[in-house]
Design a protein around this nucleic acid. Structure first.
Length: 589
RNA sequence: GGGAUCGUAGUUCAGCUUUGGUUAGAACGCCGGCCUGUCAAGCCGGAGGUCGCGGGUUCGAGCCCCGUCGAUCCCGCCA
């Protein structure tokens, strides 16, 4: 190319008038007036209007006439103020334009599948196929900038705290617990497989044993599970581990990191101390272990009133060990028509498997509609007083097993808040959820499984329960939740071989299996393992929050679809017979 | 593994249980023409369709039925 840029497309202002400059970029828009031609030239720094006048060079103007959107060009010209009344106050460079004296056409573009100026002109399917074009859009360029700035902020903050950055293997040993592994066949070791890491968990624990007491890594993790709007098969974590620390130390570090990133990237000041919520309390109050606390609407206990009412459904559930809980939507009863409540009921039944959704409304005289008729006058007044109900409030109830009741009401709480626009935007509400159960009973395999992972240590005061009542054991595990997203999660680890063996035993892994799977880690524990713990931030979710989007694909340069495919390069794909043969793999059927 | 929604010019959509019926429309983009101060430029004209794919019902299917593929959202799953 002849004309190499001397400035970018976002930096020229009135101060540059008279300067001769060269601009390189893509044509964002062409406006051909027959004589004078205007092109908006774009790069990732901004847009500048470049002007062709046939009086300057007729041949060049006719070449410019042919140019279309997204052609790549280089122009040389003089910066001039736009004529009176033609200043565009809507753009930073709107005061000036470049009157072109030389034009070099670097590459012409074919008609586009969608407009770079408006992402919405293409379906997501199409945009993913042409991801490199979507990445030219202003919106995605912003998202990628946020992502890039966050990498830098994290590295600076953690380095300043004395953390060392590591890389751990991507080809590792398959682990039996947790998510499904992505497997990589070994050519050299016939019939054997590597796994891609679900997280570098064991490596970072080994690094603690090696004495690197403050470790971090920005690392890709892989989980072969079904996807969601906030889940990708490969995703990035800020993985952190520390030695000689307790839970408070890790939470404090996570707080400093989160505050630093939000301040550095967004200029937002998060509170100096994040609220800490007990897991049990989170479930009872919000029906979720990752509550969105930007709005209230807590779940309330209703069993005592249900006992006194003449409503068989609630009583039967309570008698069989279930729960009755409710939530109050203030001043919106008039918006919940029969059609709306039926719709909510159907939705909860289908997705959360509950048997029904009950409600009543409040008017000047007492309760009305729904299940109000099952409550005596006196009981109605008691409910109105106890829950300080007012006219036009509506109270919803779910009565089912504990797990279903909490989950369904938690989902309803979010849905109602969305519908009623009760969630403030541009606000961030971080909190820690702590004291997760150590174990979870798995119906399918008829055994306990580790709720977090099998290296999570129990709270010291709960160790006795490991023998007497394992389900009650609380873990030294914690999550950082912001606006309803699980942004980070971690735990204080087990660091003695005895406790680790006990844990394996509890989750039904016998010594031989534990030895085969984690023998290397157990062996390492024998050579002086320090107490340690850590936390991992879901990097993509963090960026979603910082960038203000609710779609994880928006913050990943080349994301995959819900079926874990890449529409752009068509991965995964079939491979040749030769490749398979080398790996000693034969496809069945 | 399950449920829901969607699939019609290059693209976004309308048309689909109001009635299944001649030639499937609009906008943006694209191509051509006019136009020397626009910035969503304007005006005139034009090209562009296997209605995702397969089967069925029917004299006749974009429309009704069954299957299938893909995208999205959700439940299960995701330590």
């Amino acid at each position: 190319m002849q004309l190499k840029r001397t400035v970018n497309c976002g930096e020229l202002t009135g101060n540059n008038v008279g300067e001769e400059v060269i601009l390189n970029g893509w044509i964002a828009k062409n406006r051909d007036h027959g004589g004078v031609i205007f092109l908006d030239l774009r790069d990732r720094y901004g847009k500048t209007q470049v002007t062709f006048n046939p009086d300057v060079d007729g041949e060049m103007a006719s070449r410019a006439k042919r140019l279309g959107m997204e052609d790549v060009i280089a122009v040389k010209g003089v910066v001039q103020t736009r004529p009176d009344g033609n200043i565009n106050t809507g753009m930073p460079t709107g005061e000036i334009e470049v009157l072109v004296s030389e034009l070099e056409i670097l590459n012409e573009a074919e008609p586009l599948p969608f407009l770079i100026s408006d992402r919405e002109t293409g379906s997501e399917e199409l945009r993913l196929e042409y991801r490199y074009l979507e990445l030219r859009t202003k919106e995605l360029q912003n998202f990628m900038q946020v992502r890039a700035r966050t990498y830098q902020a994290v590295r600076t903050l953690l380095s300043d705290e004395g953390f060392m950055e590591f890389e751990t293997p991507v080809l590792m040993k398959s682990t039996p617990e947790g998510a499904r592994d992505y497997l990589v066949p070994s050519r050299i070791h016939v019939g054997k497989f590597y796994a891609l890491p679900q997280s570098p968990q064991t490596y970072k624990q080994l690094l603690m044993i090696s004495g690197y007491d403050k470790y971090f890594q920005i690392v890709k993790c892989f989980r072969d599970e079904d996807l969601r709007a906030d889940r990708q098969p490969e995703f990035t974590q800020i993985d952190i581990e520390m030695s000689f620390v307790d839970q408070d130390d890790v939470l404090a570090l996570a707080t400093r990191l989160a505050r630093g990133v939000f301040s550095e990237v967004l200029g937002v000041k998060l509170p100096a101390v994040f609220p800490i919520l007990d897991y049990k309390e989170a479930m009872e109050t919000y029906g979720s272990d990752k509550p969105d606390t930007r709005f209230e609407m807590p779940l309330v206990e209703f069993a005592a009133y249900a006992e006194k009412a003449d409503f068989g459904v609630f009583k039967d559930v309570l008698a069989s060990g279930g729960r009755v809980k409710g939530l109050i939507l203030k001043n919106a009863a008039d918006k919940i028509s029969r059609k709306v409540s039926d719709g909510l009921t159907e939705w909860l039944k289908t997705y959360y498997g509950i048997k029904g959704l009950a409600f009543f409304k409040v008017d000047g005289n007492g309760l009305m509609g729904g299940i109000s008729k099952f409550f005596e006058e006196e009981l109605q007044q008691e409910i109105i007083n106890d829950f300080t109900l007012e006219t036009n409030d509506i109270m919803f109830f779910v009565s089912d097993s504990e797990a279903k009741t909490l989950q369904a009401l938690g989902a309803l709480r979010l849905e109602l808040a969305k519908r009623e626009s009760l969630i403030p935007e541009n606000e961030f509400r971080p909190l820690f959820v702590v004291n997760f159960p150590l174990l979870d009973w798995d119906e399918d395999s008829g055994r306990y499984i580790a709720m977090h992972h099998p290296f999570t240590s129990p709270r010291p005061e709960d160790v006795e329960l490991m023998t007497s009542d394992p389900a009650k054991v609380r873990a030294r595990a914690y999550d950082l939740v912001i606006n309803g997203y699980e942004v980070a999660g971690g735990s204080i680890r087990i660091h003695t071989r005895e406790m680790q063996n006990r844990m394996f035993e509890l989750i039904g892994m016998d010594e031989a299996e534990a030895e085969a799977r984690f023998g290397f880690l157990l062996k390492a524990f024998r050579y002086g393992a320090p107490p340690h713990g850590g936390i991992a931030f879901g990097y993509d979710r963090l960026i979603m929050l910082l960038a203000g989007t609710d779609n994880i694909r928006d913050v990943i340069a080349f994301p995959k679809t819900t079926s874990a495919a890449s529409l752009m390069d068509d991965a995964p794909s079939t491979v040749s017979e030769d490749q398979l043969k080398e790996l000693h793999i034969k496809l069945i059927k």
